[in-house]
Amino acid sequence: MSESNTSQDIASLYRFMAQCMQYPDSEWMNDDFFNVFYNLLGTFGAITEGKEIRNALEHSSDFIEDLQIEYTRLFINGVPHVVAPPFASVYMDKSIQGSFALRTLSFYREKGFTMEDNADLPDHLVHELEFLSLLAEEEDFTGEEEFLSKLFRPWYKQFCPRVAEETRHPYYRMVVTLIDSFTKEEEEDGFQLNEA
């Protein structure tokens, strides 16, 4: 496998993971999507998990609505609490749009990227994965590694277990685990929590 191909593969994986974390909608969350998803899980030996998800979807009268409700509960506003807001600042600054979000945006800018007008906050999980995908496309592996270690992993490793433990749907357990695996090095670096 050439380096260029690898970088494209990495970019594709990041983009796919970003897509997985978009709000569920039948526009994109269709049979094609799930076929690709199950195939990917199979590649990584997660066949049982794939079956579990397939089973949950097949036994639902409206699986899109199930996933929308679960997405809302996990990431937007949920009862009893929103489980895991998908923003870095929430974990690092205990606030939306904390200084960690600014640092994230600064990093994007240093690398020559910017936020689109209709984008969510810069430290939203989806955008961070998109950004990582773009870095991979540019074969900026140093940048990718720096971003992962300084700005992504410190919060994601708090976010991921919250979702994995609290979710009522195997799809989200799998997606956050997939992202975790793909962004995790063997040794996590320590990172100081900003004071709220």
């Binding site: 983009r15 796919f16 970003a18 897509q19 978009q22 994109w28 094609d32 999507f33 690709v36 994007y108 990227f113 910017t114 936020m115 689109e116 209709n118 984008a119 969510d120 810069p122 939203h124 989806v126 955008h127 998109e130 950004f131 995908s133 773009l134």
Partner: peptide, 9 residues
């Protein structure tokens, strides 16, 4: 199966 648009560009 991914959207062509991204929030970061």
């Amino acid at each position: 199966v991914v959207s062509a648009e991204t929030g970061v560009a």
